[in-house]
Design a protein around this nucleic acid. Structure first.
Lengths: 214, 214
DNA sequence: AAAGAAAGTGAGTAACCACTCAATTTATAA
DNA sequence: TTATAAATTGAGTGGTTACTCACTTTCTTT
């Protein structure tokens, strides 16, 4: 069970990522493929060992438990996912004099590429998030807090410029969160898409900015 | 594995829903609670039997396999979910002279109530949909086809009245699908909400109709 | 009340599960 | 080269799983 808090999970027991054996890497790769395809609990360690062409014992020598193997492939993803969700935005906005629409496009293209590169791990993450109450309770508030605190400034900035509707930042955040998370989860997890076209990105941007009413 | 097509699954091997034993109903109820909470593959038939206060053999007498038990609780939900997604809309729109905004409100409140009533089965359905490629390949096109064909008329109607942006009905359908499915899945599956407030419904309607740009 | 059918039981089973461990191979360092 | 450490192996273990089946109980019909 994943019950240690996020910071512990990130900093903690994991060995430094540099010192990986060839077999260790094959184990991780195979686990990612199989977990994404069939789900964590429908994948046996025997299957992973077979695919990685490794003895089952090797998995447990390195990762101790199956749960810890899951954590070992989730943590690097989260370590990239969580901070970038807040930091890279700042650059995209503050350095350039982009419009809200341009800001949205940068954000969506950036996250689109990231999720595409990490498609399988993203799938594993969402699928596990749905089942594991404790993981949900640890991570969601963290993600929301982390994203909110910095995005709020961005939103208020655009409101001052008159590019955004004059409603509480909270409302705008919630709305953006619903639409954007819905967009990525439906595409990458539900529909299992291998790519996202620019047109599709333009389409939700149009919705977010203009709505579909007349 | 669920590989028969949808119509077979709906019409097929299932016994008529009327002739259920008390114990049969307790089995279904328990399975719904446990599958929703811990997921299908993390729930054992022994657990279900224990919760339903029934011998394990009884489950298999009636349902044959665990997979078929899953189907038996999913099918009534789908039988209600699929047609209503198309029929009830017609009434909400055609009989009343409602605005697009009113139409959306009716639609969202109606589906909100339905998903709330069937919260657990909806969760099970989405969770299984994510994993089972064949179920996804059978159902999603069916749902999309079924919803699209009738909603297209509604959309064109509102476009004629000048209440909707003048873009292809396909675009509007896709957009509505993304936002609405994202809304319900995030609330009922990811966040595990027990209710949806009217304000929240008004909020996405505002987004859908106006966007958040200025 | 008798008989047949249907519902319900629970101990038993083979397959599978995550995980262990003593033994072996390979890499590292002196 | 030799000693020590680290990586790898795979047969083995106890526990769990979905499912079976011979049997008993309850319902239905005449």
């Amino acid at each position: 069970m994943i019950d240690k808090n996020l910071l512990n999970a990130l900093a903690g027991t994991m060995q430094p990522s540099g010192k990986k054996t060839v077999k260790q890497e094959r184990i991780i790769e195979s686990a990612i493929i199989l977990f994404a395809e069939k789900g964590y609990s429908n994948t046996s360690t025997a299957e992973i060992a077979k695919m990685a062409e490794v003895a089952e014992g090797t998995i447990f020598k390195h990762y101790g438990t199956k749960e810890n193997l899951l954590l070992s492939l989730l943590v690097p993803f989260l370590r990239d996912f969580l901070p970038v969700m807040a930091d890279e935005l700042m650059d995209d906005l503050m350095t350039q004099e982009t419009s809200f629409q341009g800001f949205l496009k940068n954000l969506l293209k950036n996250r689109s590429e990231f999720f595409l590169e990490n498609r399988e791990v993203f799938q594993i993450f969402i699928k596990e998030l749905i089942y594991k109450e404790n993981l949900k309770n640890e991570l969601l508030p963290y993600i929301i807090e982390n994203g909110s605190s910095r995005l709020t400034k961005v939103i208020e900035n655009f409101q001052k410029r008159g590019e955004l509707v004059n409603k509480p930042a909270e409302f705008i955040l919630k709305t953006l969160g619903t639409v954007i998370s819905g967009f990525f989860i439906s595409r990458f997890v539900l529909l299992n898409r291998q790519s996202i076209s620019d047109e599709e990105i333009d389409e939700i941007i149009f919705l977010i900015v203009n709505g579909i009413g007349q």
